[in-house]
């Protein structure tokens, strides 16, 4: 091809306007978004139901809609059992969270940072509780407490919850430790930090987001656990066991109030931490 031809062909600007391309209509263009919105709506149905019925004028059972009221919210503790069960859940959740977070964080640091024998079996020991159905864990602990003659109560529930939260803490914190650049700690040592100072001033602050996330996860697992708790509760009622036992005779609207309040608080925490993470990312993005 001669250059002249190429130039003539190539740069000759055709005067006649070309039609705009037809947009392709594919599966992804409208079907998928529509489906996704509908799927999310479906997921939210029972949540909305629970929240709406926390405003219902109701007697003992809270199934039919009788009219709107704030009374259940203002008088949550009119139903003393609900409040007591909620209190027990908070107490159990807090203690289990603190102990599981401490034990789990220690294991996570050791797993990522140190070499030791029996590594594989340690990892298996962490993984297995997550792969064991709750009935088995519940029944096993109950059988053990039974044979050891330990009376069931708040104590046994806390021991059980700490156990199953532990594995989740290890997994969450481990991811954070692994993503931590060891050079940062080395720099700390290089700058005359004692091991203790390095841990307190560098390692721990960097791990804190992961530890907090693990604690949050622990608390929500503990707070919502029913199966393991039921096997080891004795006469103590937590919020979930209260609902289970009351299911036959009807759940008071105050239970919906507590569940809704917990829901809003949890969503608020998640949204705030997301926004904080987003703005931190933006801030870091500006100064590369």
């Amino acid at each position: 091809m001669s250059t002249q031809e190429a130039l003539a062909l190539g740069l000759a600007t055709t005067a006649k306007p070309t039609p705009a391309p037809r947009r392709r209509i594919g599966l992804g263009t409208w079907l998928l978004p529509t489906y996704s919105v509908m799927a999310l709506v479906f997921l939210l149905i029972p949540i909305v139901y629970t929240i709406v019925f926390s405003f219902n004028i109701s007697g003992k059972s809270n199934i039919a809609w009788n009219g709107f009221t704030f009374a259940n919210w203002t008088n949550v503790c009119d139903q003393q059992d609900v409040c007591a069960a909620f209190g027990a859940s908070l107490l159990i959740g807090s203690i289990s969270t603190v102990s599981a977070t401490i034990l789990g964080t220690m294991i996570a640091i050791a797993l990522v940072r140190y070499r030791f024998r029996f590594r594989a079996i340690t990892s298996l020991l962490i993984f297995l509780p997550m792969a064991t159905p709750e009935v088995v864990i519940g029944a096993g602990l109950a059988a053990q407490f039974l044979s050891a003659g330990v009376p069931k109560g708040i104590g046994t529930i806390i021991l059980a919850h700490t156990m199953f939260c532990l594995s989740f803490v290890v997994v969450t914190v481990k991811a954070r430790v692994a993503s931590l650049d060891p050079a940062l700690e080395e720099a700390g040592r290089d700058l005359y930090g004692s091991p203790r100072q390095v841990f307190l001033r560098i390692t721990f602050p960097l791990l804190l987001p992961g530890i907090l996330a693990a604690a949050l996860l622990s608390f929500s697992l503990s707070f919502d656990d029913f199966i393991i708790t039921y096997f080891n509760a004795g006469t103590v009622q937590t919020f979930p066991t209260y609902i289970y036992i009351s299911a036959t005779r009807g759940i008071p609207a105050q239970a919906n109030v507590i569940a809704s309040a917990v829901f809003f608080i949890a969503i608020a925490i998640v949204v705030i931490s997301q926004v904080a993470a987003q703005s931190r990312r933006k801030r870091l993005g500006k100064t590369p």
């Binding site: 629970t50 019925f53 299911a247 949890a266 949204v271």
Partner: peptide
Amino acid sequence: ILVIAPFFISFLLRTLA
């Protein structure tokens, strides 16, 4: 957040709903 929202409301109450 909407996907994980069900985590934050009692599993038993959701099922009863």
